[in-house]
Design a protein around this nucleic acid. Structure first.
Lengths: 237, 237
DNA sequence: CGGCACGTTGAAGGGCTTCAAGCTCTGTGG
DNA sequence: CCACAGAGCTTGAAGCCCTTCAACGTGCCG
């Protein structure tokens, strides 16, 4: 029974991009002490500055990494969906978590101990390369956000956030529009773009009048992806 | 002669925080095909989007990583000084450089091929851990900048930039003040904080009137570190 | 000494925030 | 079932922070 459980964990891991094609022996080592955990909306998986010994893989639901600032304003650093890995870096370095991870809806994660990662990466170059690529990619993304926040206007940043989300959680509808399949309030968009909910509200309302998207309560559907792309890339003037 | 050269490279590497205590055999492998390169002010070491096969260690001088945006505005992502490693991540993943690296003054770097890093990290766990910690640290720093740009005012961001620079290149003077030992124009500070040179000029001028620092041409000396720290942490009303 | 890059300062204006009030849904309990 | 509370959202008005444009200093270096 424990065997069945454990082997099912390995199966789950093998389905993720990070651990696909990693030898079963390695997956055995990684899943020792692993367990599933279900979460409800608003629940915190990790808390900022907690010590990090575990990382996790998203099995279902959506999550976000939030940094709390001293002024009480929160900043959303990333959104995680099925197959994404959360807290890998800090589990490897044993640093405290750089932010809190909050469940955006009911979901489930597979929690894994960080310690076995090192020996497994030593034996399995494939995994080592993937881990490094993952972190490198996240660093690059974060640097891009620094550039955007430094030189771009709010409109552009909101457009970019919508595009990013459409790639992450976009669902193509029958009429060709793209629904962002997560509960996304105006406040959430504001935290993603470093602005206020009022400004987001006005911007989204204007775009809805132009027919570029449909906006509902905590819900957005993109109608004209190309126009939003244009705004994201538009020169400021 | 080539032997002497090569062994001196290993000696140079052994002096850096990243490669200290790494076995000589490993350093041998890493320095195969290495060479020194001198740079003059304003010279570019790497160009944005170039393919990355080499990384480098700073032997002298100062450098900065700049991201060029489509609008022509540049953003400074990091400053590098003696012992710092540049381009390590991209050399490992063979990604293109995320920005250009510019020499801020006359300096010298040791250029190293990226390929040997993988096998060496496999044999030397110490190095592997250090590399990961390095990248993790940079990711954390970058995330902090995202938060600052999202929620903080220009004043705070400039104060923070000064504090960061004081830790990086600060030189304690006889009278207790801290001189930032690099050519730092108003425009450079603006690129570090996501604002304009005029705003930086006004802010620095105001702080100079208050006696918090001395500002010269491309040069700043911090007089009251505690007051600048207070501004950096101050709640925005 | 003239040119150029760096820096200062002023004035105007706009993008965005902030404050405030009211609206619209959703869910809940009587 | 309906009223009510509350969270989410909208909208308006005021204003400030910061940008932008512009002109003028200032010092360095050929």
């Amino acid at each position: 029974m424990l065997d069945r459980e454990s082997s099912s964990y390995q199966h789950l891991l093998a389905q993720t991009a990070l651990f696909a094609d990693v030898p079963p022996v390695a997956l055995d080592q990684l899943t020792v002490g692993a367990y599933r955990r279900a979460t409800v909306t608003g629940e915190y998986l990790f808390h900022q500055d907690d010590a990090a010994h575990r990382y996790c893989v998203v099995l279902s639901g959506k999550f976000r990494l939030v940094q709390h600032s001293a002024e009480g304003k929160d900043v959303t650093m990333a959104v995680f969906v099925l197959g994404d890995v959360i807290g890998l870096v800090v589990a490897l370095t044993n640093d405290p978590y750089p932010g809190s991870v909050e469940a955006l809806d009911a979901g489930e994660v597979l929690l894994l101990p960080g310690a076995p990662l090192w020996p497994v990466m030593n034996d399995c170059g494939l995994l080592a390369v993937r881990v490094l690529r993952l972190i490198a990619g996240r660093l690059k993304e974060t640097q891009n956000r620094v550039r955007e926040l430094s030189v771009e206007r709010v409109q552009q940043r909101i457009a970019r956030a919508l595009l990013r989300l459409s790639q992450k959680v976009g669902v193509k509808e029958a009429d060709g529009s793209i629904r962002l399949a997560l509960t996304l309030g105006r406040q959430d968009l504001a935290q993603l773009t470093g602005t206020t909910l009022e400004t987001v509200s006005r911007t989204i309302a204007a775009w809805e009048r132009d027919g570029m998207l449909d906006a509902g309560r905590e819900q957005i559907t993109i109608r004209k992806l190309d126009e939003i792309t244009a705004i994201a890339q538009e020169l400021p003037i």
